[in-house]
Design a protein around this nucleic acid. Sequence first.
DNA 1: CGTTGGATTGGCT
DNA 2: GCCAATCCAACGC
Length: 188
Amino acid sequence: MGPDLLGRILARRLGDGTLLTARIVETEAYQQDDPASHSYRGRTNRTEVMFGPPGHAYVYFTYGMHHCVNVVTGSSGEGSAVLLRAAEPLEGLEEMARRRGTDDPRALCSGPGRLCQAMGIARNENGVDLVRGRELWLLEGSPVPASGIGVGPRVGITSGTERPWRFSVRGDRYVSRVRPAEPVRGSR
DNA sequence: CGTTGGATTGGCT
DNA sequence: GCCAATCCAACGC
């Protein structure tokens, strides 16, 4: 499911009518049978949306300051989702720059926290229908052929790193910074 | 209840 | 390269 979202467009309509769009270039898949997934330990208040119908947004808050947005993928009761990690800003760059505090187009949506900040996605958007929604939704865009997709280990997790479920558009300049593979870090 | 640490980022050494 | 920021979900007592 992760690779299918590459090349799709994420659209956002702000309260004042401003339209923001971005082309998804990097994703990560999370499944219920996956120690790295929030759904691994079953249904909770936070993960409830992950277990709901597909095509909805699962938005969570982390590190005390960042939001991340996922597309719920499995059927109801399943607990799987795809994290949107990076996108190429297409429309509304000025507004995104204002929200991000930088003009650099590569720093607007390249990273899960950055993407949410640029597009004004927060807990308010948790659970919204990304197919029929009018504030946050997905457009078909142009799916990326398999030959143009890169696969690798997921980023920022301490377990489940052996699952190669990070997908990106190969060579795309808006893919987020790849961290070194070396994960051995002692204290917190 | 109290504790722990996180699907990150940006700034400083 | 390293680490603080800063909230809160999950888990243990």
